[in-house]
Nucleic acid binder design. Structure first.
Lengths: 125, 125
DNA sequence: GCTGTTGTATTATTCGAATAATACAATCGA
DNA sequence: TCGATTGTATTATTCGAATAATACAACAGC
């Protein structure tokens, strides 16, 4: 069914994450026009209302803005976007470290563990 | 309100994670009796039904078992628990690496990034 | 002016999570 | 035996997420 999402988190939040990522990676450039709500809903295979909800939240956060009935655009606030580029991986990493500490892993062994996992302990696409 | 949980994931799943962690860390030793449903519900400040749901799932998974009306216990299957000890951090790490790659971070820079974050880039309790 | 596209709003329905309030069955201990 | 404790089951209600089906307002292009 939902090819894009997992079930443990609301879809609209997962959409927000994906759009933020696209903005951070420059796939959605500053000032660039994004697809209409209905199209994005179709692409993500979700209900237009769900898509609308996600985009409205992103607008609240300042990452998107609406130009009347003309369409929706990515913010031109490049500082906000630069900030996103650094804060996204930072948050993910801070979260990861917290989880590992919670697991009982000593702080000074975590990065070694990551090294090991990357080099061959696990198979990562 | 919910001092223990965040809102982006169902509480009963978060409880499951916490119990698994406690088992892996040995805080709940193999064969050890755990608190009654009602007590655990009170401790976690959730509804007894929610607690019951989590414990039932953990039982399905084989980590707990019920002795009639006597109480609930942690499995004596130490191999299962040993497996948990390694698989928990492995899964967390695999997930983390996938997220970082998704962010566009080169594979060979991830562990350095973690090192940096641990040593002082971030403040971690 | 008309039509299509855009964002937005509204109402209703379904579903699962969570809570509440009980009730029941089985065992243990006094 | 009696009562407390245990796990379990049942029914109802509330809430948010998600979907469905529309409807409306505003602008662009013909």
């Amino acid at each position: 069914m939902t090819t894009f999402f997992n079930s443990t988190q609301p879809i609209y939040l997962q959409i927000i994450s994906r759009v933020l990522l696209a903005i951070a990676k420059g796939e959605l450039p500053p000032g660039g026009k994004i697809s209409p709500v209905r199209d994005m809903a179709a692409n993500f295979k979700v209900n237009p209302n769900t898509m609308q909800k996600s985009l409205a939240k992103l607008e609240e956060m300042g990452y998107l803005y609406t130009e009347g009935t003309n369409g929706r655009y990515v913010t031109k606030n490049v500082e906000l976007i630069e900030n996103l580029k650094t804060s996204l991986p930072a948050e993910i990493t801070a979260n990861y470290i917290a989880e590992m500490l919670d697991c009982g892993m000593p702080r000074d062994e975590i990065s070694d563990y990551v090294s090991y996992a990357i080099k061959g302990g696990e198979k990562n696409g």
